[in-house]
Simulated assay, not measured.
Amino acid sequence: MSHDHDHGHDHDRTVKPMVDEITDFEVLEIALRELCIEKGLFTAEQHRHFTEFAENIGPTPAAQLVAKAWLDPEFKALALTDPITACKEVGVDWLAPTGFGTPSDFVALKILEDTATVHHVIVCALCSCYPRPLLGNSPEWYRTPNYRRRIVRWPRQVLSEFGLQLPAGVEVRVEDSNQKHRFMVMPMRPDGTDGWSEEQLAEILTRDCLIGVALPTPGVTTNVITATHPAANPI
């Protein structure tokens, strides 16, 4: 009796095999990828190579570009007038970042220079367009409707939620990325960095600074996680 009871008890607790579930978007990605490979647009090896490239890039090249521009006026002029060429000097070739083909998000890049009276911040109000060859994959918050819709309407409020309080005399310009254009912010060089090397300057140029939701600050070398509080105008 005891044996039968134990057997039944164990049977009741048996966990059913897990079933892998995929989303509709994943199904579409698989179908499109296999079709492209079948049509000869790229090989499976090229797809693997690009996927690994996309997963490993980060904001380091962008930080190096701005740091170099802070120290070299001629390079700064090049970065602001011909940013695609300037990118090559920090190891990023937008036309062929992986050594084959053209990335799907390349058309045009513009670097936005902050001044004492103008502060830039970037967004993609429609989806999540982002200068990936320079900044890597976009942060999750950049892709949320909460950021995309609100930064356009209430930029100062949203920036304050990131911990960035700008003086009233500073104009905030929101640049909307789209299918054809990508933007990156060149913030002002902060006080207290005289005599710093390019490597030292690059360390304080975090991803958030290059998006425009933070300012480079001596001693701050990572993206700051600010305390979360309710938004006044949530969407």
Rank of each mutant, 00 (worst) to 15 (best):
V92W: 04
A108I: 00
P218D: 05
V27G: 03
I57L: 07
G219F: 07
H9T: 09
K110I: 05
E34L: 12
A108F: 09
D24L: 11
G8E: 11
K76D: 10
D194L: 05
P61A: 10
P17F: 00
A125D: 10
I111Q: 09
V90I: 11
R13M: 11
L135I: 00
D105W: 06
E161P: 00
A77I: 07
H47P: 00
I37R: 01
H5K: 11
N146R: 14
T193V: 14
E199L: 09
A214C: 01
P167H: 07
R182A: 14
P97I: 02
Y142Q: 02
E74H: 09
A231F: 13
A232K: 12
V121N: 01
L109Q: 07
C124T: 07
H9R: 08
S2P: 01
W94P: 00
N56K: 14
L126Q: 15
P218M: 05
D4Q: 11
H47V: 01
H119F: 00
E175W: 14
N137Q: 15
P17S: 07
I30T: 12
G169P: 00
W196V: 03
Q165M: 11
A31T: 13
T60H: 08
P83G: 04
D72M: 01
D12W: 00
S160C: 01
Q46A: 10
P73N: 08
P139M: 04
A62P: 04
D12I: 04
D72C: 05
G58N: 15
E21A: 07
R132P: 04
G91Q: 09
L135A: 06
L112A: 04
I225C: 13
R153I: 09
H7M: 04
L210N: 07
I211P: 02
K39A: 10
P216V: 07
H120I: 06
C127P: 02
H3V: 10
G219T: 14
E171P: 02
T14F: 15
D12E: 14
I57T: 13
P73F: 02
F50L: 11
A116Q: 13
V121H: 08
F75Q: 00
R132T: 15
D82K: 05
H47E: 12
V90R: 01
L201N: 06
E199P: 09
A77Q: 11
K16F: 06
I57G: 03
P131R: 06
K39V: 02
L164W: 11
D10L: 12
P187Q: 05
H9N: 09
H9S: 13
